[in-house]
Amino acid sequence: MKEKLKGCLRQLGEGLFSNNPVLIQLLGLCPTLAVTTSVNNAVGMGLAATAVLICSNLFISLLRRFIPRQVRIAAYIVIISGFVTSVELLMKAYFPALDRALGLFIPLIVVNCIILARAEAFASKNGPLASVVDGLATGLGFMLALVLIASVREILGAGTFWGMPLFGEGFKPAIIFLLPSGAFLTLGFLIAGVQKICNIRDDRRKLEGTDPEKEELA
């Protein structure tokens, strides 16, 4: 039991940080760039994608012995789009404002490469429980990246956080951060920061000659 829990925590850590779908694997960039104009939208998109990821990972893992190899991608897409449609309808019913803000990017979760990548790389080879944890970890990692980018863009571009004004009247927001070019620039600088951290870590490891596995756990 304890071993299992440790494995789950490790999976979570990988999804959130060391194997973050956006900042490290560079997947799912369309929604990342598009919906991060406010933290509110980022959390909504992150939750929607996490829900779809958990459900699709669970079902694909349960069906992995029954889906023929040749048509597996088509089968995955049908399963994923089924869940995306459910999420879309639920969102329209209960969060109409969020649905309007995210627009077409809710149905476009179907073609989000993160979800298909997890289905192909993880859920089709592992049991249901591990797949659900993997879906949760990857989804939360996606949300973390979205919230990070959205915080930068909302604070600098609108001077607010979750809609609440942060600065006094005199603050002039830099609208460029809300424009499409701001999305590319913010993500570029964030990934550069991540690469800087990775570089420092790698250099230190080389100097000390430590075991990378041990450092990962620490």
């Binding site: 560079l26 460029i176 424009l179 499409p180 070019s181 701001g182 999305a183 590319f184 620039l185 993500l187 570029g188 600088f189 990934i191 550069a192 920061g193 690469q195 800087k196 570089n199």
Partner: peptide, 23 residues
Amino acid sequence: PPRAFRGFPLTLIAAGLLAMAFS
């Protein structure tokens, strides 16, 4: 570019500048 910007970050920043032109 500086080492941290090599590869993807530089590509994204170039895309950002191009997007600025398109805006």
